[in-house]
Design a protein around this nucleic acid. Structure first.
Lengths: 82, 82
DNA sequence: AAATATTTGTACGTATGTATG
DNA sequence: GCATACATACGTACAAATATT
């Protein structure tokens, strides 16, 4: 999964989708820290604003929890919502 | 209500509180547009990021609705939630 | 204890895109 | 076409919390 810098979809939505997939697929399991903002910037070649908007989305969805000074972690559980 | 630039509370939270008050008090009634980002920047002497973060909070709370190209409007109703 | 490094949070600026009037 | 207004995206700097040396 790579980001299309020339595509129509906003970069932060693309990045959010990538991270969301990695979480839902188990590649990033509950409790695991996702890459730091600085790493995500390098990996995906986007600015900090874009990274933070993407992570913000995941936080709003309850998928991750950010802790100042430590990192951002995949939430313990996705409530099944069935 | 003015913003304390030297206070402890983050500027965007202070601004959000001010706008929230203006909405809840009826000073900004439902349907009314709140001042544009550029105006809020001038009025409160803060940057765009600060304004957008404050407005984002109010959007998350359902108090306002932003429409690209038109403005940001006080939501029709605050659900009473009693 | 103290200094350093890492990481998220806040705050500013600028430029460009998109939608509306 | 032009002006206005929100949206996206980049950059920088510093603060605050945490972890490590």
């Amino acid at each position: 999964m790579t980001i299309d810098h020339d595509g129509i979809e906003p970069l932060y939505l693309q990045l959010a989708a990538i991270l969301r997939d990695q979480i839902k697929s188990g590649e990033l399991p509950p409790g695991r820290a996702i890459p730091a903002e600085s790493r995500l910037m390098q990996i995906h070649e986007v600015g900090r604003d874009t990274v933070r908007k993407a992570v913000r989305l995941l936080r709003d969805e309850g998928l991750v929890v950010a802790v100042q000074g430590r990192g951002t972690f995949v939430a313990p559980q996705e409530p099944s919502e069935d």
